Amino acid sequence: MLKRYKLMMKIIFLCSAIFFLSSKSFSNVLATTYEPAKPPKILSFTASSNKIKAGDSITLSWYVLNATKVEISGIDNLDYELSPISGGLKVTPSETTTYYLTASSEGGTVQASITVAVEKSSPDFFNIDYFYGSESEISLGETVTLYWKTTNAKSITIIGLEKINEELTSLPLSGELEVFPMETTDYILIAVGENYEIIYKIFTVTVAEEKKPAKINNFSTSASKINKGESVILLWDVSEAKSVTISGYPTDYLPLNGKLTVTPKKTTTYVLEAIGYDGVTVKKEVTVTVIESNVEDPLKLDYVVHDWGDEYIMDVDITNLSNDTVDYWSLLLKKSEFDISIIWGATLSENDEYYIISPLYYNDIIKPGVTVSFGFQAYDSPKKNFFYEFLLD
């Protein structure tokens, strides 16, 4: 019996010890794992301005600690959650407003406020608050959006709108409009007040011209072949160029179209260069052949013209300047420069490009220093510097 009693006491003691130790360990676990949430703290809640005029905007800014959610009262149609730490929000109060910032978490809720005073305009105050465009410089073909806002205006008009917008019978007192300027344009917004006073603002849109390449329409000469000592006329016509030059002519600038008399001493190639507004240089060249008389042409041609207006007679003398006898000669004239109807003292034949004038039996041989003659009648007016060439056997 005594043994059973001792055994029961041991069991009771062990159970008590186990319960005591288990309770103490659980308390320690609770003590080490549970920590209450910290309350949120609003470090700052400010406005970019505490006093504004009606229609102006301000930015609300905040900086918060230990918050899981931030809300600001007095703001409508906000479709996103505000940052619980820091942020900024642009608002346009229509009247004096007190904004309340509420920061909350499991640790509690705190609140801060700020008041923005809105100064409403006087009924007598009349103004164009702004008038500007999305761009002030564009390329041809691009569009611009005009923006404007007025205060206490009765009506507005914008001068300078294109035909596509001219059908607008009225414009809102504040608004926007897309325009299509085809050239540099001054848009003028005119506002009329309640007492019919008028104010205006101007916004200019500069339209850059298309950078077009230069084009050489013509570069030619009055004659492609001349005798030494004679002159020739260079003619040119250029468009869309910011500069024109001709090689061998001492100037850095020539007009877009013109003519120039030159007397080359030898066969010369003239090069016309035109620089376009796109910065690209285009070129064209012409060659004037100079015939050395003492080498190629022992014969000299002189002439006298009797001009009647729409017809003329040309008396021609041919002189042998060399020391040798010319046994036979013929003369080439360009058909593009002459329209011969009658000839005397010579015979006339032709091909596609030239008249061929040949001597008769009595003037086919020209001794040194001797002159022979012939003449012809032609239509239109004579050319001052015309092409000719002797063919000798």
Rank of each mutant, 00 (worst) to 15 (best):
N257P: 00
E106T: 06
V271T: 14
P250Q: 12
S136A: 09
L7A: 14
K242Q: 12
I356W: 06
M182L: 10
T319Y: 00
T59V: 12
I226L: 09
S134D: 08
G345I: 07
E350D: 11
I318A: 07
I365T: 15
N227I: 02
W148P: 03
K10F: 14
A378N: 03
T151H: 03
Y354I: 04
I226G: 03
Y200N: 15
A117W: 08
T102M: 08
D317P: 02
V232P: 03
N294F: 11
T269P: 09
D79Y: 15
T221C: 04
I226A: 08
D307S: 13
Y270H: 06
I226N: 02
A112M: 13
G87V: 03
Y277S: 02
T251G: 10
L60R: 01
I365C: 12
E230P: 01
L173N: 10
S381K: 15
S16D: 05
N152I: 08
S134Q: 11
K300M: 09
V372A: 04
E166V: 06
S247R: 09
V262G: 09
S174V: 01
A17L: 15
S239L: 00
V295R: 11
L189K: 07
K242F: 07
V316R: 07
N257E: 14
L146F: 01
P181S: 09
A378F: 09
F386P: 02
T68A: 02
L14R: 09
L177H: 04
E35S: 07
A274W: 06
A223M: 08
Y5D: 11
S48F: 10
V238M: 03
T33L: 13
T204I: 13
D393T: 10
F20Y: 13
Y63R: 10
